[in-house]
C-alpha cells in the first residue's frame, strides 16, 4: 500500500476525475497522492485502481467519499507553537495597530484545528471583536461536521502544544468533555464565518490582512503551488501576512518578489508588492 498506485493508473484516474467531476488532481504532489489513493482503495475494499474508477463512474456517492479519503486533515492545534507565538506577539499586534478590522482568511480548510487555534489567540489578545475570520471549506460535509460541535481528537498533543505556546493559561477552559469526547467551545467562533470554497479562482473583494495556509502547498507540485499562491497573493493586501507550514517554501522567484520574509524559521511572509 505504501508504494501507492502506479503512475499509469494515476494518470488514468486523474484524467477520468477531471473529465467527469471537473476536478484536476494532476498537479498534486504525486508520491503522497498515489499513496492516499491506494489507502482509499483498500478502505473501500477494492482491489485495484481500475475497480476504483469503475465505482466512481457508477456510484454517485462514491466521489464524495473518495474526496474525503484523499484529503489531508490537520489534526493538531498549535502545531509548531513557536510559530503561533510569533503570530500572537508580533503579527497580530502590528495588524491591530494599523487596521480597524483584521481580516483573516483560512483557505481550503479540511478540519477545524487551525481555525480554533487562531480564534483562541485572538481571544487571549482581546481582539475577537476587532477581527473577522473567514474559513473556506473544501466540501459541504466537512463544513457541516465543523459547524455542528467540533470534536477534537489528540487532546493530549493539543494541550502540550498549547503549553509551549502559553504556559500561563489553562487550555481546559476552551473545551468540554461529553461521553468521553472533547468538544471545542463554539463561543470561540463568534467572529468566524464559514463558506464553501470553490476551486475556481475566488473573487475576494475584501482585502485580507493575514492568510493562514499551513501544510497545504506541500501537497501540490510547483505548477499548482504557483497558481494557488497567485490567487492567495491577489487576495492579500500590501503589508498583509502569509503564514505557511514550517517546511514549506515559496519556490518560484517571480512569486517571491511579492514577499519579504518576516520570519525565516516560522515561515511568515509579508506582501510588499502593490495591488
Amino acid at each position: 500500500m505504501l508504494e501507492g498506485i502506479s503512475y499509469t493508473d494515476t494518470k488514468k484516474l486523474t484524467a477520468i476525475i477531471k473529465e467527469r467531476f471537473n476536478l484536476d488532481f494532476s498537479n498534486y504532489a504525486m508520491s503522497s497522492f498515489r499513496h492516499r489513493v491506494s489507502v482509499a482503495i483498500s478502505k473501500f475494499n477494492l482491489v485495484s485502481a481500475d475497480s476504483l474508477i469503475e465505482k466512481l463512474l457508477n456510484d454517485s456517492y462514491m466521489f464524495d467519499l473518495f474526496l474525503k479519503e484523499v484529503s489531508i486533515y490537520t489534526t493538531e492545534m498549535f502545531r509548531d507553537p513557536s510559530a503561533w507565538k510569533y503570530i500572537s506577539e508580533t503579527v497580530l499586534p502590528k495588524l491591530a495597530s494599523q487596521n480597524e478590522k483584521i481580516n483573516i482568511w483560512l483557505p481550503e480548510c479540511t478540519s477545524g484545528e487551525d481555525i480554533y487555534t487562531i480564534a483562541i489567540i485572538l481571544k487571549e489578545l482581546g481582539l475577537t471583536q476587532k477581527s473577522n475570520i473567514t474559513a473556506s471549506f473544501i466540501s459541504n460535509s466537512l463544513m457541516t461536521s465543523f459547524s455542528q460541535g467540533y470534536e477534537i481528537k489528540k487532546m493530549e498533543l493539543n494541550k502540550s502544544n498549547y503549553l509551549r505556546f502559553n504556559e500561563k493559561n489553562d487550555f481546559s477552559e476552551y473545551y468540554s468533555i461529553s461521553n468521553y469526547k472533547a468538544f471545542m467551545n463554539s463561543d470561540l467562533l463568534k467572529n468566524v464565518s464559514i463558506e464553501k470554497f470553490l476551486i475556481a479562482p475566488m473573487i475576494n473583494p475584501t482585502m485580507v490582512n493575514l492568510i493562514i495556509y499551513r501544510n497545504k502547498l506541500i501537497f501540490f507540485n510547483s505548477i499548482l503551488q504557483f497558481d494557488v499562491l497567485t490567487m492567495l497573493t491577489n487576495s492579500l493586501e500590501c503589508g498583509g501576512f502569509l503564514f505557511i507550514g514550517a517546511k514549506e517554501n515559496i519556490i518560484n522567484p517571480e512569486m517571491r518578489k511579492h514577499y519579504k520574509v518576516i520570519s525565516e524559521h516560522e515561515r511568515i511572509y509579508k506582501r510588499i508588492s502593490k495591488n
Binding site: 504525486m30 503522497s32 492516499r36
Partner: peptide, 11 residues
C-alpha cells in the same frame, strides 16, 4: 519524487 526532489507530507 520521480525528479529526485524531496516532498514532505503531514499525512
Amino acid at each position: 519524487e520521480a525528479h529526485k526532489h524531496f516532498a514532505l507530507s503531514t499525512e
